[in-house]
Every structure is written in C-alpha cells, then in structure tokens.
Amino acid sequence: MVEIKFNGKRYAYWQQVSISASVDDLAASVQLGVTRSGTGERLGINENSVVEVLIADTVVATIRPDMVNRHVNANSHSIAIEARSLGRELVDCQYSQTLSGLKLAEIVKRLCSTFNVPVQIDADTTLVPDFALQCESPANALINAARAANLLLYATPDGGLKLTEPTSAAPVATLVYGEQIEQFSVVDEYKLRFSEYLVKGYDYASDKALKGGVKDAGIGYFRPLHIMADKAGQSLGGCDRRAELERNRRKARAHRIDLDVYGWTHAGGVWEINTQVRVVIPDEDIDGVYLIGDRAFSLDDQQGSMTRLTVMRREAFLGEEAPAKAKKAAKHKKAKSKPIIYASDLE
C-alpha cells in the first residue's frame, strides 16, 4: 500500500501510482491518483508542502508538488498529484556560481546547501580546479562532474542526493523469467555508440592544446563524437582517459534489460537503484549480475502492484570494458505466476 504523509496526516489507498528514480536523475518523480464518490474536499497540499511517500511504512521519496489537479462532478471527485523530490530545484533553476580549488564532494555539498537539499557523500573525490555556473542548471554541471569522476549522483528517499561509487555489493535477489519476472525487454540502443571519440582540452598552466582519442571497433562506418573537455574531467588522467571512459560507458549502456517484476519489494526490503540483482532468462542465455539503474513502482486496476527495473552491467556506470559473455544459463523450472493483487482488494 502507498501512503503520503504531511502535516501529521496520512492518506492511503491511491488507485493509480507511479514512483520512479534513476541514477541519471537528481529528482525522483511521483504521480498519484484516486477517484471517490461525492464532492470531497481539498487535500491540503500547497506549493510549500513537503510530503513523504511510503510503501509498507518505508519512505521511498520525499517530494514537493509540481501540480495538484482536483476534478469534481455531480457524482464523484478525483485528485491527481504530480511531484518530484527536493532535488528538483537543482534541475529547474538557472543559477550562477564560481567555485575554485575545492574537491567535488565539497562542491556538491555547497550547492545542495544553497538549495536546502540533503546530501550524503560516500566516496573520495579529487580536486576540481575550477567549477563555474553561468545562468545554467546546477544539475547538468553536477552530473557531468560526477560522471567524469566515475561516480553516481542520484536521488535518495529523504529527498536529497547521494554521491557514491556504483555498488559492488552482492545481489539483493535473484530474478528468474517465469517466476519473479512477468515480462522483459532486451534493448540494444545503437544510437548511443560512435565510431570514434575525440576529446579536446586546453592546459592553461602550460599554454598548450590537448587532445586524446579512441575508436569503437564495433561501429564500421564514420560516426564521430568530438567532446570539449571541462577542467573537472581533465583531472582523471587526461583526454585519452576521458575518451576511453566515454566509449566504454556508451558501449555498456547501449545494452540494457527492462524487467517487470511482481510487487514492490524483495526479501530484503523495497527495490532500490544502485543495488545489484542476479537475472536469469534461459532462452536469452542470460545469467549474470546486473546493477539497477532505473526503478519505477506502479499500481493500477489492470496489473496491480508492479516494479519496472532497468538493469545494466556495472561497467556501464564505471566506464570499463565489459567482461566476456557469461556462460549459458542453467535451466530453471517455470513456476506458477504469483497472483496479482488488485487495488480494489486492498483493505
């Protein structure tokens, strides 16, 4: 069951639910809807409200509303809420700030403090010689700096952000097609890849131009990507290393799997991004450990409670070459599908 909590009140039994988060986004997104008989009354949420979203008494998002829509007719009333977590201000706002001689962790802390966004730092970070925003979104600059450092920066349940490495922890669950997995999609997004990567920069200390490049041997036609390196990225080993990171990350991200699994939890709790799962799909020769990059909870009167997980190899977030293909999956007996619980069955 999904509940929202604010001003000491709790509202439950939402009929339509979508709660999504991604390691590539600084704000989680929430959509809730319900229709009841009668004319109803205002929910009490306004533009300044901070709302906790709970699943099974676990906070999964802390949000501010983007829109509240109340619709009333002679027989019923409905409420629809669209909202995002507190990091949305870093996404929406245009801001100017210049910071010099600070580590990436301190830059993240300062910008989050400015916008009153909680932050957790769980990584060692290098010095960023110069970091400047000029009438631009803080989110874009922060995400680019985190990627250049091979780190993740993503929304947390308290509404804030976490700067950390892609997890190397053991899988939290094993998901088998026909058992926990209802359906899946294997996605090869070829447009993410280029035949060659050229990174250009400038060393102001020595007053000389810099460049580095690398090729993707899998692309057999001319499709170049030229990148102007920022100063934050150059601290990771130069333009050659930056080009390698870009190629390897794009090769890994071009192949992903979307999984629809029953319910919103596993044995250890609610599904979370930046955790690993073992995925077994025998007919696709898939049996390996993948990192959850995107997670979306949903509830409707057709499928009941479901979770969409987008998983990729951990190398997709590290910029490392993918390992050799895993051995063919062992055969699993196909278990009976778990019954779907409809919203109308909730008590």
Rank of each mutant, 00 (worst) to 15 (best):
M1I: 13
F6A: 06
Y11Q: 00
Y13Q: 15
Y13R: 15
W14A: 11
W14Y: 10
S20L: 01
S20F: 00
A21N: 06
D25N: 14
L26D: 09
A27H: 14
S29G: 10
V30W: 10
Q31K: 15
V34N: 00
V34H: 10
I45M: 13
V50N: 05
V53W: 04
V59E: 06
A61F: 07
T62Y: 02
T62I: 04
I63R: 01
I63K: 02
R70Y: 08
A80C: 05
R84Y: 12
S85V: 06
R88K: 04
S100F: 06
R110M: 10
C112T: 09
T114S: 13
N116F: 03
P118L: 01
I121L: 13
L127S: 10
L127K: 04
V128N: 05
S137R: 15
L152C: 07
L161Y: 02
E165Q: 13
T174C: 03
Y177M: 09
Y177V: 10
I181A: 06
G201T: 11
Y202K: 11
D203G: 02
A209F: 01
K211N: 15
H226E: 14
A229E: 03
A232H: 09
C239E: 12
R250I: 00
H255N: 09
H255M: 06
D260T: 14
G263V: 09
W264N: 04
T265V: 08
G269W: 01
V270H: 02
E272P: 00
I273A: 03
R278Q: 11
D287E: 13
V289W: 01
Y290I: 04
I292L: 09
R295H: 03
T307W: 03
F317E: 14
E321C: 10
P323W: 01
A329W: 07
A335I: 03
P339N: 06
I340K: 14
S344C: 15
D345P: 04
L346P: 01
